[in-house]
Computed example of a mutant assay.
Amino acid sequence: MESLSLTELTHEHLAKAHASSAGRSAITVHGRHDYVMRQTLVALIEGETLAPHDSPQEATLHVLSGRVRLDTGEETWEGGAGELLVIPPQRHDLLALEDSAVLLSVGTGSNT
């Protein structure tokens, strides 16, 4: 069994995001493209965004720290630490309203 601290990874990757010219840092904590599920911790400093992108078939976003806004153009959702959002299957962006870390869980469609 594998175990890791999302709290420690959050602190580590927020520090990396602050040091990065892009204002973000990410690490895959579980899975690969050949897994059925992949989980990625994404840290964003306040004001940074993940530009509009298409949604995978199945995805959730768990806010680990901070506050974020997900915008589809038709709907907007704001969430803080401890909240979980089922990402709608449409194009969207993500904005960090304050320094934030989220755990993105994505169904890859693979089952090998």
Rank of each mutant, 00 (worst) to 15 (best):
D99G: 11
T112Q: 10
S55G: 09
I27P: 00
T112S: 12
R69P: 01
S21P: 08
T72C: 03
L44G: 00
G23N: 11
S65L: 11
G66E: 02
G82C: 06
E8N: 15
H13N: 06
L50Y: 01
A17P: 10
G82I: 05
I27V: 07
Q90M: 11
A96R: 13
H62E: 05
T76W: 00
L103A: 06
E74P: 03
T49D: 00
E2L: 12
L64V: 15
L64D: 08
E48P: 05
T112D: 11
E46G: 06
Q57I: 13
A59E: 15
L103Y: 08
D99R: 10
A17E: 07
G73L: 03
D34N: 10
V63A: 10
S105M: 08
A22M: 11
H11L: 04
L50R: 01
A81I: 02
S21W: 10
L104D: 01
D34C: 09
G109K: 09
T60F: 14
L14G: 00
T60R: 12
E75Y: 02
L41S: 03
L85Y: 04
P52H: 12
T40M: 01
E2P: 14
H53C: 06
V42Y: 00
L41Y: 01
T40Y: 03
T112F: 10
G79T: 02
G107Q: 05
E83P: 00
G107N: 06
S105R: 06
E75L: 03
P89A: 15
S100G: 14
P52L: 09
A26K: 04
T10M: 07
Q39G: 00
E48Q: 15
L41P: 01
G31S: 14
T7Y: 05
G82K: 09
L9K: 14
S65I: 09
N111D: 08
A51D: 13
R32F: 12
P52S: 15
G31A: 13
H11M: 04
S105H: 06
